[in-house]
Design a binder for these strands. Structure first.
Length: 472
DNA sequence: ATGTCC
């Protein structure tokens, strides 16, 4: 059956505009190529008209197509020209790139307010350490890749002296009860059941249904990067009535991790979707948002909350196993997300508060701000500072990138630093060395308007993902 | 951060 180059055939291979179809039919009449070859060529023309701009036979059609494409309505959403100012805490610690990214975020038409925490540094879209309040819209990259990345602290009834006298046992159990490494999960009978796996949100989309199995395998694992599980001593200079903890020193277990592959896949999926729905100028492209009244926005909101619950469940499992393994009882527990979005009231209005590497610090709200593997972390209580959108930093922040740290810091220097601070380390490369981080005390001094310190946690035994190994 | 673009 012979193919014909007619209007119907051109529509079948994707041409839509009558004017272009007319031009092609005119040109087709004056070429000798057989119909099948010609349709093949025209298929390419439709896909890549730019590559035909020098073609002697098809350049005029190609040019008309390129011009038509350029004249198409520009759907890019414009940014606001004169954005509001935003509060910056500890500007002397913050790299210029992070401030530029925050300024761009302030220009979104959905933005109500923003703030930059003293550990801020550049990220994708919103900077890490950035807080952004928006009106009825959620920005997947305003939450970050590791949805529900969080801290959890268990204050135990084990005397500090007992820990000091039995470090070998604590080390053995820290290795036995935790699992680190990108992609890692439990296999077979090692897998841990938890009510979060019965959360019906897993059934609302094909994406989530498909993620449940890996989530089940990774439940109770810690992942890689800057995630850790550590024993340390927490020092309460004063008794805390709310926690019910008397002044003094306690052995405590502290963890930092998130929602593993589950949250990462959700973040990736909805960021791509947001970018396709919400085209923004290049400098703001990663700040694409989803309207909370849209189906995609509601899906993301539910999926994000599922990832948050899952991350919380992971910490709960790690703490339960760890404390049980050493026979520790629980005196007090504090935990908080630092990569998440919440519906909150700001200056009397309901807003969506994105905290991407920022600790919730509403009035009276407790949170944990870790230092580094040798520097202290702080148990804090928020002051509810509106200018900071009820937030604080989520750590010390890096002063060297991972690549910089690997180049500059030797194994020996890292070992000496650990020894000087009497910290036992399991895993971790020089990219996580204490010297790669800013001075947490300086960072804390930049946010005295945002939080009060309740207690100080000193790391003693730290586990992180191995140096490139997956057999953690 | 993440089996690092379905």
């Amino acid at each position: 059956m012979e193919k014909k180059v007619n209007g119907e055939a051109l529509k079948a291979i994707g041409f839509t505009e009558g004017k272009i179809i007319g031009m092609i039919l005119t040109q087709a009449a004056s070429v000798t190529t057989d119909a099948a070859t010609l349709l093949g060529l025209l298929t390419k023309l439709n896909e890549y008209p730019e590559s035909f701009l020098d073609d002697p036979e098809w350049k005029s059609v190609a040019q008309a197509m390129v011009e038509a494409a350029n004249a198409a309505v520009d759907t890019t959403i414009p940014l606001v020209g004169n954005p509001d100012a935003f509060a910056v805490y500890g500007p002397e610690f913050i790299e210029a790139g992070a401030t530029t990214q925050m300024t761009t975020a302030m220009k979104l038409p959905i933005t109500i307010a923003g703030a930059l925490m003293p550990d801020a540094h550049q990220g994708y879209g919103l900077p890490i350490g950035g807080v952004l309040a928006t009106r009825n819209a959620v920005i997947p990259y305003g939450v970050g890749v590791d949805i529900g990345c969080r801290m959890a602290l268990s204050i135990t009834d084990i005397p500090v002296e007992f820990f000091r006298a039995n470090e070998a046992r604590f080390k053995r159990e820290l290795i036995a009860q935790t699992k680190f490494g990108a992609g890692n999960g439990f296999k077979g009978r090692e897998k841990i059941d938890h009510a979060v796996l019965e959360n019906e949100t897993f059934q609302i989309t094909g994406l989530l249904r498909g993620l449940k199995e890996r989530a089940a395998a990774q439940l109770g694992t810690s992942g890689g990067g800057n995630h850790f599980a550590e024993w340390g001593v927490i020092d309460f200079a004063e008794s805390d009535a709310e926690l019910g903890i008397e002044k003094g020193q306690y052995l405590a277990f502290l963890t930092h991790s998130g929602s593993r592959g589950l949250g990462a896949t959700i973040a990736g999926h909805y960021t791509r979707l947001a970018k396709s729905i919400c085209p923004l100028p290049p400098e703001a492209a990663n700040l694409a948002w989803l309207d909370l009244d849209s189906e995609a926005g509601q899906e993301y909101w539910l999926a994000m909350n599922l990832a948050g619950d899952y991350a919380s469940a992971c910490h709960a499992v790690i703490h339960r196993k760890m404390l049980q393994s050493v026979g520790a009882g629980l005196l007090g527990k504090v935990e908080n997300h630092h990569n998440f979005a919440w519906k909150e009231i700001l200056n009397g209005e309901e807003v969506i508060v994105h905290r991407k590497g920022a600790t919730p610090a509403g009035k009276g709200v407790m949170g944990i701000i870790p230092g580094s593997m040798t520097a202290p972390g702080f148990l804090v209580r928020g002051k509810g500072e509106a200018a900071a959108i009820n937030s604080a930093s989520h750590g010390a922040g890096r002063q060297m990138s991972r690549t910089q740290a690997v180049k500059k810091i030797t194994r020996e220097a890292m070992r000496a630093e650990l020894k000087a601070n009497e910290v036992t380390l399991i895993g971790a490369g020089t990219d996580e060395a204490p010297m790669a981080y800013k001075d947490i005390r300086q960072v804390m001094s930049a946010q005295t308007d945002l939080v009060d310190t309740i207690a100080m946690f000193t790391p003693k035994m730290v586990r992180m993902a191995g140096d490139g190994s997956r057999e953690d």
